[in-house]
Every structure is written in C-alpha cells, then in structure tokens.
Nucleic acid binder design. Structure first.
Lengths: 239, 239
DNA sequence: TCTCAAAAATGATAAATGTCAGTTTCAGTC
DNA sequence: GACTGAAACTGACATTTATCATTTTTGAGA
C-alpha cells in the first residue's frame, strides 16, 4: 500500500477535523464519532500513487483530509475516463462497499494527499446503526448521481469545445484560483482530455484556440480563466 | 396529473406486491410497511404521459408496479438524453428528494404503467427512522452510480456502433424477449439514438448494417437479437 | 544548472458522425 | 379496411474529431 506516515497535521480525532463540514461525517455525534476516530488510521499518498484500484474490493473507505485525487475508469484500450475529481472531505470507496461490487473505478492522487482510512466494518456499523449518517451518505450518493447525469448529457450532446469550456469553468468553481490567477489544480492536457472524452491533441488544439481568442491564458501547464463570461457562452451553459 | 384510476390489479398493501423483491421496499417490515401502505396511492399513466418533469420538485416518489418508463434529461437544443429505463420495482424521484434538488431528469411512461405513489413525508419518515430501508435505498443509489460510470466511459470512448450493440444486449438482458423472439420493449429509433447519444439516422444506419450482417432481425420497430455472441464482440464487451 | 523523459504543440490526413433532403413504411385511429 | 402523421430509411455531402508523425517545450530530479 501507500507510505504509511503519521503526520502531526491530520487530527487523530474527527471532531478536530477542519474539513468535517464538507464530509459525510459532519453530523456524526458521539459515541459514533469516538468509535470511528478510534478505528481510523491516517494514510499518506504521494502524487501519482494509486489509492484504490478498479476491480479490487476495498476493505475500508478513505476520507480525504487534504490533497486531490482523480476517479477514473479504464476503457477497453486502457485509456482513462476521468469521471470526478475528489478533494477535502471527499469519501472514497463507499459505493463499492455498499453495492457489494468491486470498485468500478480507480482513484489516484493528483498531488500529495492525506486521508483517513476507516475500516469497512466500522463504516458499515455506523451506516447500519445511525440513520443520520446513512442519510448523509445517501445524500452524497444522490448528489453524485445527479452530477453523473449532467456529464452523460454533455458527453452525448455537446461538442468537444463546449465540453472543454464547461470543464474549465467547473475546475475554477471547484478548486479556485492561485494568487497569480491560475486554476488551483495541476492537470496534464491528457487528463483534461480524459475528462471531456477526447483525444489529447484535440484538447490541446482547443485550449490554444481559447487562448488566442483571449478567453484563457496558458503558462506551461497552468491555465487562467480570463473571461469566464465568454467561456460560459462557449460552454453552452444557460441558467 | 395523470388519470387517477384504481385498478384491482395493484394491491392495496405492499405486502401483497408481486414486485416487492425487486423494490426498495423488499426488506421493509411492519409497522413501517403498514404505514407506507396506508399512505400510498395508486396512479395510472398512459403511454407517453409525463410521470415527473425535469426541474420540478416532487412531493413524493413512485414505485413502479407494472409498465416501463424512460428517465431522460433534455440537452440545450431540446433533445432527450435517455439515461435509464425503469421497470417493475423501480423507484422514481428519490434522488431529487434526498439531495434536495429539483428533478434532474424527466420520467415518461413508455407504455401503460401502474405505479404506487408514496408522499414525500412518508418516504422521508421511513428513511430517517428505519436504517434497513435507508440502506436499501443507498444500495440502489450506489448501484445506479456504478451504472452511470459505465455509461460515461462508453460515451467517451466507444464508437456509436459499439454503443448500439451494447445497448441492444442490455435491452435483451433487462427486458427479455417475446415469444417471437423480439426484444420485449418497444422503442423508436429516435429513442435508441437518444440512449447512445447519436443522431437518429446514424442509429438507423447501424441497425441496418447489423441486420444485413445477420446479427439482428428487424420487423417494423421490432428487433430480435439473432447472434448475441457476435453482438457482444461488436459491442467491445470483454468479461 | 543540466539532463531528459514526458508533455505540449503542430500539421496533414483519415475516419466517424452529423445534417439535410427526400422517399417509403408503419402504427394508431376511426 | 382506409387514412394519415410520424417514424423509418436512404443518399449525398459537410463537419467534427481522431490518428499519425514530428518538433518543441517543460517539469522534475540529480
């Protein structure tokens, strides 16, 4: 597995977690909160490391304390289809455990990432005994299902250009911007392409276009959204 | 709303429901089962009627007793993207209620359909008080999420031909075949196209191809899968 | 700072799919 | 059975995107 490293930054008890309001555990009270805290361990993944592997059966879930990860399926020819990016507070592996299926996707750290690992048994105990918690997980699942519906419709009906613009805006909204104005997430062009379901070259070409039209600025791998309004039109997003 | 019609075929009490083993209510015991049965009503939708409308906020969920429905989002130009077909035992509207969002998709009856309608309040009461039930709904949600991941990957990475073959096999597996050997569901070519995210003409062309290659047989709107093995290869499905 | 493999970029061409227009067939209603 | 609008089908052509090959640039590690 990953480098197991206790870091003084990740709190031993969930009650002290700064990201708890973003996580499934936000409404978890004692004694369940104590129990989970006692059972959890902290794990550290280096950028690029596999946190969970498609097809495996996880023996627990991860809750991200800090860092970012991509959740992707591999298609027939081995290409990744990135379905989601997960960050602070995100719950990983629960779907597989609850639907009693092998993992439908892999999860790989996009940057150095600290997670809490909750054993399956503990997770299921809380789910089965605490309606508030299971309702929370249900809400998360329903939310993700709604997002998946949007992705499906975009993939089916929007062209690549529209999808790229849409994803750029989503990245801005989800991860925010650095001081210099760039998207606060580092993705290769290949990863961008794997999010919108196109060839890397196509993604690159369209980024160049958006750049020469003045909607974005490119610096190395970095991307700044210069004109989000125009981008939104390009993404064919109508509120 | 729909034509409200009491039919002697739909049991008044969930305990008598023939499809209960396929539904979220399969493990529901008394007194909750009694409570839900008391509160539910039976509704009848004619083929083509809207059961729920994208964007609306449902005041209850439907559980399908008999019939079939399509769940679809409309893209920007009004075209349907069919994401799922729902049949006996299927639960409709729960995602919207639980994630507290307007409906992300419309649900339209593909044929005459009988449903039980459970008011939101009753549904939420059982969810919040009965861990077994909420776990069941969670499983359903997780299962659907896994299916959505597969659809996303297919849309992104398979060509239209592969996707069509895949969907034909799925229809056979889900709905079975009539005595004459045709798929036991009636879909227009447009609906098939809207499932695989392509233009109607493209779907038609590829159906013709598969037919002239002997993999399927077409009779009017009806489709028989003649050579499922070859179809599976065409669908690029590898177990 | 240097090195180098990986990533980004670009151009040319091929392949897949969409759009448009017109004809034929079919399902549903009376 | 007759009628009719919708659906299915087909052909021609346009557009979008993928693939392949090559060059340039960059990020990361030493």
């Amino acid at each position: 597995m990953a480098t197991k490293q206790i870091t003084p930054n990740v709190p031993a008890h969930c009650a002290e977690c700064l990201n708890r309001t973003k996580s499934a555990f936000k409404n978890l009270d004692n004694p369940d909160l104590d129990e989970v805290s006692k059972r959890k361990s902290c794990v550290f993944f280096r950028k690029g490391q596999v946190m969970m592997q498609e097809g495996a059966r996880p023996q627990g879930v991860y809750c991200i304390y800090s860092g970012k990860a991509k959740l992707f399926k591999r298609g027939n020819e081995g290409k990744e289809q990135i379905m989601r990016l997960i960050t602070d507070g995100g719950l990983i592996g629960y779907r597989s455990i609850l639907s009693d299926e092998p993992l439908g996707a892999s999860i790989v750290a996009l940057e150095d990432t600290h997670v809490c690992y909750i054993p399956k048994t503990s997770f299921l105990e809380v789910i089965e005994s605490n309606p508030k918690f299971s309702l929370n997980v249900l809400k998360i699942s329903c939310n993700e299902l709604g997002e998946a519906g949007k992705i499906i419709t975009s993939l089916a009906q929007k062209n690549v250009r529209e999808r790229l613009a849409e994803v750029l805006l989503l990245l801005g909204a989800t991860f925010g911007h650095t001081k210099e104005g760039y998207l606060d997430i580092s993705l290769t062009r290949e990863e961008l392409a794997n999010m919108i379901g196109t060839a890397t070259e196509s993604a690159i070409r369209l980024l160049s276009e958006l750049s020469s039209e003045g909607l974005i600025t490119l610096k190395g791998r970095k991307i700044a959204l210069v004109d989000p309004i125009a981008l939104k039109e390009r993404a064919a997003i109508f509120d």
